[in-house]
């Protein structure tokens, strides 16, 4: 559980550190003294804080699964590492491109470049779908090569981790669809920019998660 503990301690430490700064100098029992409002740093809007909190939850999910992965490796004598299909490199490239496209889409949204935004947003979704299709193909290749889900815990963890990651991307695609629909419905620019921004940040996060998972699969 070391991985989970480190991450959870880091998240807790960030929260506690922030709370400490908010509270250390306060004398709450004194009416109307001291700083009257303690806003979050500029730019921390409700949706951004919401996304941040959600990313903490997702971090916890993946950290715990990876902890279980590392513990299970040690616990049984039956662990046989699985070869990582070469296709995953291509899939990873697709996810990098998706993330990049959404980052550029965010910039286009901020500059109110509607056409460019539409293209980049579509590209972001397209690359993500390519990534997901590639992951399914990798599953098929592994099945064909005899690396069944139940054959070995290493295989089971591979399928579980990739499925969890894919499911989170699918959830992201639902948000992406909503932004796309609003874009076609001529939603107001500020809303669009905020929506695209959340998508981009979420994609970057899932790219980071995938990089760590991929690294884990390659090295163990």
């Amino acid at each position: 559980m070391t991985v989970s503990l480190i991450l959870i301690v880091a998240m807790m430490a960030a929260l506690v550190g922030w709370l400490l700064r908010q509270s250390i100098a306060e004398r709450p029992w004194v009416a109307a003294s001291g700083p009257q409002s303690a806003p979050l740093p500029a730019g921390f809007t409700a949706p951004r804080v919401g996304l941040l909190a959600f990313l903490a939850v997702v971090t916890s999910v993946f950290a715990l699964t990876v902890s279980a992965y590392l513990m299970r490796m040690e616990m049984g004598a039956d662990w046989r590492s699985m070869p990582v299909p070469g296709l995953l490199w291509a899939n990873s490239t697709a996810l990098v491109l998706a993330s990049l496209a959404l980052q550029l889409a965010w910039r286009a949204a901020a500059r109110d470049q509607a056409r460019r935004l539409r293209q980049l947003l579509a590209a972001g979704g397209g690359f993500t779908l390519a990534f997901l299709a590639g992951q399914l193909l990798a599953w098929q290749q592994l099945e064909a090569a005899g690396y069944y889900l139940v054959a070995n815990p290493a295989n089971a963890f591979f399928y579980l981790l990739t499925a969890l990651h894919g499911a989170h991307l699918l959830g992201g695609l639902m948000a992406w669809t909503r932004v796309l629909a609003r874009l076609h419905g001529n939603a107001d620019a500020a809303w669009l920019c905020a929506g695209v921004e959340l998508c981009a940040l979420y994609w970057h996060f899932l790219l980071l998660v995938w990089a760590l998972l991929f690294g884990l699969l390659l090295t163990t």
Partner: peptide
């Protein structure tokens, strides 16, 4: 974190 009214500090 976000929707507290004016003057309502965390403490």
């Amino acid at each position: 974190l976000q929707a507290r009214t004016r003057g309502l500090t965390l403490m």
